[in-house]
C-alpha cells in the first residue's frame, strides 16, 4: 500500500533553538496517527512543517505524491505553486478555528474552492451545504462565525478544510480552546471522518479519543520521536521511562 505521507529527516530551528531533530515518518492511506507529548515538544511545529506553514531547515516532505524539499532563500514561482498544491492536499484545522469573521458560514466554506480551484459558485455551495449537514450544522449556513459557539465554529472549520477534498487532514489541538462540554461534538465529527477512512494526523491531549480512534500513537519529546506503537502498546505498556512519566501526569490530570 502506498504511503500517503512520507517525512524524511525533517529538522527545524527557531533561531538557536532546535525544535525538530531529524524526524522521519511514514503514514499509510486511511491511517489515523495521534501525536502526543508535553507542550513545547515540537508536535505542533511538526504538523505546521508538513503543510509548509513553517519553512523546514532540512529534510523532505511528500504528501500524496507531491514532494517538497527544504530550501534556503526565496521560492521560485514553480515551487510556490507546488507548495500551494501540497497545502490543498493537506487540510488543516487550527486550535483557534481561524474562521473568516467577515464571511457567513457558507462563504467560509465556499471561498477557497471558488478562488483556488475555480469551482462554480453553485457547485461549491451545494457541496458546502452537504458538508455542513455532515458536521451537523445545516441550519447555520447564513450565520456569521461570531454568532456560533466555539464547538460549532470548529465544526465549520473542519467542513471548510474538507471542502478542498484533501488527501489527509491535519488537526492541531482541535479541542484545546474549547470548554470541556463542547469538545465531544468536535471529537464526534472527527470519529466519523476516521470511520470513513480519512487519513488523519491529530495533535491532541485527549487521551480517551487517542486510544479509541488512533491506529498509531507517536510520543514526541524535545523534538524527537521517543516511542511509537498501537494505542494499546503506548497506553498500557509504554517501553520508555519518559513516555510513562508523561502519561502518568496527563492521565492524573484528566481523572
Amino acid at each position: 500500500m502506498a504511503s500517503t505521507i512520507l517525512v524524511e529527516n525533517l529538522t527545524k530551528s527557531f533561531g538557536a533553538n532546535r525544535v525538530l531533530h531529524g524526524i522521519s515518518l511514514e503514514q499509510d492511506r486511511g491511517e489515523v496517527l495521534i501525536l502526543i507529548g508535553p507542550s513545547g515538544c515540537g508536535k505542533s511545529t511538526f504538523l505546521r512543517c508538513l503543510n509548509q506553514m513553517e519553512p523546514m531547515d532540512s529534510g523532505r516532505v511528500t504528501v500524496a505524491g507531491i514532494s517538497f524539499e527544504a530550501k534556503a532563500g526565496p521560492l521560485s514561482a514553480l515551487e510556490r505553486q507546488q507548495q500551494r498544491k501540497l497545502r490543498t492536499l493537506a487540510g488543516m484545522v487550527f486550535q483557534s478555528f481561524n474562521l473568516f469573521p467577515h464571511l457567513t458560514v457558507l462563504r467560509n466554506i465556499t471561498e477557497a474552492p471558488i478562488v483556488v480551484r475555480g469551482l462554480h459558485a453553485v457547485q461549491a455551495e451545494e457541496k458546502a451545504r452537504a458538508l455542513l449537514a455532515k458536521v451537523g450544522l445545516a441550519d447555520r449556513a447564513n450565520y456569521y462565525p461570531a454568532q456560533l459557539s466555539g464547538g460549532q465554529q470548529q465544526r465549520v472549520a473542519i467542513a471548510r478544510a474538507l471542502a478542498m477534498e484533501p488527501e489527509v487532514m491535519l488537526f492541531d489541538e482541535p479541542t484545546s480552546a474549547l470548554d470541556p462540554e463542547l469538545r465531544d461534538e468536535v471529537l464526534n465529527v472527527m470519529r466519523g471522518l476516521a470511520r470513513e477512512g480519512m487519513t488523519m494526523i491529530v495533535v491532541t491531549h485527549e487521551m480517551g479519543f487517542a486510544r479509541e480512534v488512533g491506529d498509531r500513537v507517536i510520543f514526541f519529546d524535545q523534538g524527537l520521536i521517543i516511542e511509537e506503537g498501537s494505542p494499546e502498546e503506548i497506553f498500557t505498556q509504554p517501553k520508555k521511562e519518559r513516555t510513562r512519566e508523561f502519561l502518568r501526569k496527563v492521565l492524573a490530570k484528566t481523572t
Binding site: N51, M53, R80, R84, K85, R87, T88, G91, M92, F94, S96, N98, L99, F100, E111, A112, V115, V116, R117, R160, A161, M164
Partner: peptide, 12 residues
C-alpha cells in the same frame, strides 16, 4: 491566524 488559514486552504 487569518492569513495562515487562507494560505492553508491553498490561497496565494
Amino acid at each position: 491566524g487569518q492569513m495562515e488559514a487562507a494560505l492553508a486552504l491553498g490561497m496565494t
